[in-house]
Amino acid sequence: MPVVKESKQINWKDKFVELVVVVIGITLAFMMNRSYENHKNKQVEYQYLQSFKDDIGSDLKQLDTLLRHQERQLQKIKNSQSLFSRSTINPDSAMTLIGALTTIYIYSSQKTTYETIKSSGNFNILSDYRLKQALIKYYQGMDDLKYLRQTTNFYYNTFVIPFILKNVDLHRKKIVSLNALRNRRFRNMVYGFQSLLIQKYTMHKELYQSARTVMTLLKQI
């Protein structure tokens, strides 16, 4: 039986055009997908940026007020220290000092956006490198403050509060015995507390500066 050989001509030109069309199609699909993803990411980024603006704006207001209060508190403690060298103690000045000692200002930041972006693993969605670094610095500064806050609270509970409870009639707002203020322990308690407050004030000021940097960058975007 004769073998019939069927020869088939391959049209390379058509095949090539087909291939090019497929490649272009796939590339276009990828590009569209990427563009869609970018668009989506941009929207998410925009939402995060707005949210950060709100958080930092609120933090700045709070820090501003806090710093002013702390300045006044430190000034009062500083002024009252002249009491220690006087022969007679003015009860009103003494009460001013006690008032300054019994106040602890606590900074409570709005961390919702930061916590959300961190836990969702979306931090890299923020495209501005400088902003990312500034945000990290600001929120890291807050964690940095944690230890000092704990220590100040410990100091307050261990030294300040027991003294107040023992020596101040809180109901009448009067010092039971002014002589207690002449005691070395009291002076050391005041100086120690003052050092901690100054350190805390300095750290709040640094945080304020960091927050302002973040806000400036947020506004530029």
């Binding site: 990312k132 929120y139 964690d143």
Partner: peptide, 29 residues
């Protein structure tokens, strides 16, 4: 120092090395 009656003595603490609380933001950055 206070119990022993020393005055004028300055004592300092150096801290800030403990980054346990800051690990997550540091990794994130």
């Amino acid at each position: 120092a206070e119990q022993m009656g020393y005055s004028g003595l300055k004592i300092a603490a150096v801290y800030g090395d403990d980054i346990l609380n800051q690990l997550d933001p540091l990794i994130a950055s």
